[in-house]
Amino acid sequence: MKLISLVNSAVIPFVIGFIVIYAMYKRIDVFGAFVKGTEEGLKTSFSVLPSLIALICAVKVLRASSFFEILSFLWCPLEKVTSFPSELVPLAAAKMFSSSAAMGLLTDIFENYGPDSYIGRTASIMMCCSETIFYTLSVYFAPVGIKDSRYIIKCTLVGLICGIAVSAFIASKM
């Protein structure tokens, strides 16, 4: 555990140090390049703001309407067939929209079932293999103006379902 947190906290200093040392070795204007890049970066993040507002509003409405709880209720009859706990359905659904919403649900799960229970473990592994689909889609495509995303969501969902199934399987063996 110590090693992992050490490696993880070393990532940013190491990456930045390496970039700067290499640039100095190549004798480029490091400060000038950095400032030029930050300016572009500010424009980029501003271009993301409209989709951010749109998405967060939708998530808020869904959470206020207890949509995710209703999903978990609807899953109950399928729980026996799939042996996938219905408590985890809201987490899987929320993760597609926003990671902060998913993180909130994850803490609820840890609080109620503990991180070392079957549900807690499955939730943890599941969160590793899924990404915020709708956030990524709108943030990456909106600045370029792409409206037709074709088969992206379909393919990602297929992969996500397999990832969740694998998570539940591994957790049951732990």
Binding site: I19, I28, T38, G41
Partner: peptide, 14 residues
């Protein structure tokens, strides 16, 4: 995002 874009630019130019 701005900071990382800055470092990205540095890495690009080097």
């Amino acid at each position: 995002v701005a900071m990382w874009s800055g470092f990205m630019k540095v890495a690009e130019e080097s």
